[in-house]
Amino acid sequence: MHHYKGLVKPYVLWSFLLIALPLVLIVLYSITTGDNSLLTIHLTLDNFKKISDPVYLSVFMKSLEMGLITTVICLVLAYPMAFFISKFNEEAQSILILLVTIPMWINTLLRTYAWISLLSDNGIVNSLLKAIGLNPVNMMYTNFSVLMGLICDLLPFMVIPIHTSLAKMDYSLVEAASDLGAGKIKTFTKVILKLSLPGVINGVTMVFLLSISSFVIPVLLGGHQFVLIGNLIENQFISVGDWNFGSAISVLLAIIILAMMGVMKRIDPDDNGGER
């Protein structure tokens, strides 16, 4: 037992240095002002009060809107895909899940630039439209282009947890429901959907939180006028240099994340998936 405790100590140390200490510093920056030296900092809540400015509130509302739309579309696309994959044997499922995850092996910047080549005014899509005699469509630097980038980037995060729940589901319950006279729709809503709910909740949580905090995709596909929470935090730290306000936004984002996780936990308090 003492031998295992010795092995744990380095992980505890690294967790403190890479996770706990940065979080403590962010919270400290968020409630202080000054030049951030220990002798001149002053406790204040002004950093949080600045968030009530209509400009920053609009950024938060826009982020939540884009996150919600992205999550809903990913769920609508991912559930049938995960359900379809779960119908194959284990070897085929592994191959299909591999195909789903392959895009994640490519750098996010490269994937985003690929969307630029597709959606730009002189890109592939508009070139095809011109070739068939249709007028080109302005797609870049719009909500549409940002949503396409977010959905493409985050769809695997929805497919994989849903597939995991469906793959480990006890299908004898589905057969029992059919034997008892339940139709396909009722069997799906009462048995399959309920047993896959943990995967749905995990996927929704991950996609929503990643979408509202994304900053590379909104900048490249939405233009610099398209600002979400992630862009706002990056701008405060990198461009403006206001670490205190940037930390306050980060703390508020962390609170939103914790609240989201709490809501999801209340929806599925057992979180046992198909083993219920």
Rank of each mutant, 00 (worst) to 15 (best):
Cys152His: 12
Asp153Trp: 06
Leu154Glu: 14
Leu154Lys: 08
Leu154Pro: 03
Leu155Asn: 08
Leu155Met: 10
Leu155Ser: 08
Pro156Lys: 13
Phe157Arg: 02
Phe157Asn: 02
Met158Ala: 06
Met158Leu: 06
Met158Ile: 07
Ile160His: 10
Pro161Thr: 13
Ile162Asp: 02
Ile162Tyr: 03
His163Val: 02
Thr164Cys: 00
Ser165Asn: 05
Ser165Trp: 02
Leu166Asn: 02
Ala167Met: 07
Ala167Phe: 08
Lys168Asn: 15
Met169Asn: 00
Met169His: 00
Met169Phe: 03
Met169Arg: 00
Tyr171Met: 09
Ser172Tyr: 05
Val174Met: 10
Val174Gly: 11
Glu175Gln: 14
Glu175Met: 06
Glu175Phe: 02
Ala176His: 09
Ala177Lys: 12
Asp179His: 00
Leu180Ser: 11
Leu180Pro: 02
Ala182Asn: 12
Ala182Arg: 10
Ala182Gln: 10
Gly183Asp: 14
Gly183Lys: 11
Gly183Glu: 10
Lys184Cys: 00
Lys184Gly: 09
Lys184Tyr: 09
Ile185Ser: 07
Lys186Thr: 14
Thr187Ala: 13
Phe188Asn: 12
Phe188His: 13
Thr189Leu: 15
Lys190Ile: 00
Lys190Gln: 15
Ile192His: 04
Leu193Ala: 14
Lys194Pro: 04
Lys194Phe: 15
Leu195Ile: 01
Leu195Asn: 13
Ser196Arg: 09
Ser196Cys: 04
Ser196Ile: 02
Ser196Glu: 06
Ser196Pro: 01
Leu197Lys: 13
Pro198Lys: 05
Pro198Gln: 05
Pro198Ile: 01
Pro198Asp: 07
Gly199Tyr: 01
Gly199Pro: 02
Val200Ser: 00
Ile201Gln: 01
Asn202Cys: 09
Asn202Arg: 03
Asn202Glu: 06
Gly203Glu: 03
Gly203Trp: 01
Gly203Arg: 09
Val204Leu: 15
Thr205His: 06
Val207Asn: 03
Val207Arg: 05
Val207Phe: 09
Phe208Thr: 03
Phe208Ile: 05
Phe208Gly: 02
Phe208Val: 03
Leu209Asp: 06
Leu210Glu: 06
Leu210Asp: 03
Leu210Val: 03
